[in-house]
């Protein structure tokens, strides 16, 4: 098992323990576009770990997130199609008004089942199914948002692994979601956005042979 030390800004050294990461899941809501803009563009084109993102959007609108971020990012950014095999160096956004789920055969699936905490897509559903499919090989990140979605999902990831991150609530435009996530998982690391980007790059290096 590989271990490497990283030093997030202004914090004590934390050991990156556990297994190499095979997937990253991110949840965001109000203030989420801004937060994601401080993270995703830092990933290099060959960033090997696939990233799945749920951001809350009005259900009656076509999501433009994938197009928006594809233009800003070096990695490929796509809106998830049903049953798409999860590929490296790719960021997948949940389509508007569909839940995004991870299947155990490492494909993504979509669902119109009822909203969770008034949200479809729901961060909890992505996180819980990712925890189930990837076990400790997934890490979860909760960003700015004004509700509690993501807290239960982050707990599910934490319970199967050890890698979860929450945006520093003070820095988040809407702190409720990070605070709810921290209440559910007090052991989660709180990092400001710049440090989250560094953290993702560190995960990559931790994975490299």
């Amino acid at each position: 098992m590989k271990k490497s030390a990283i030093q997030p800004q202004g914090q004590t050294v934390i050991q990156v323990t556990g297994v190499p990461k095979e997937a990253i899941v991110i949840g965001a809501s109000a203030g989420g576009v801004e937060a994601l803009s401080a993270i995703l563009p830092h990933l290099p084109a060959d960033y090997p770990i696939p990233v799945m993102v749920v951001i809350h959007l009005p259900p009656d609108r076509k999501s433009l997130m994938a197009e928006l971020f594809d233009a800003k990012c070096a990695v490929a950014v796509r809106e998830a199609d049903d049953k798409v095999p999860i590929e490296r160096s790719t960021v997948y956004f949940a389509p508007a008004d569909y839940h995004l789920l991870v299947e155990t055969d490492r494909r993504l699936s979509l669902s119109s089942e009822e909203p969770v905490l008034f949200s479809r897509p729901a961060i909890d559903i992505l996180f819980e199914t990712a925890a189930d499919a990837f076990g400790p090989a997934v890490t979860g990140i909760v960003l700015s948002g004004a509700n509690k979605d993501g807290a239960a999902g982050l707990k599910a990831i934490y319970d199967r692994g050890d890698q979860v991150v929450v945006q520093t609530p003070d820095q988040a435009r809407a702190p409720d979601m990070p605070l709810a996530a921290l209440a559910a998982v007090p052991q989660a690391r709180t990092l400001p956005l710049e440090a989250i980007a560094d953290h993702l790059l560190t995960l990559h290096r931790a994975e490299a042979p």
Binding site: K83, H99, L101, V102, E103, T104, S109, S111, E113, I125, E128, T129, D132, A133
Partner: peptide, 9 residues
């Protein structure tokens, strides 16, 4: 059926 959703439900 796709199991992730079935399992939840």
């Amino acid at each position: 059926y796709a199991m992730a959703s079935v399992k939840r439900r």
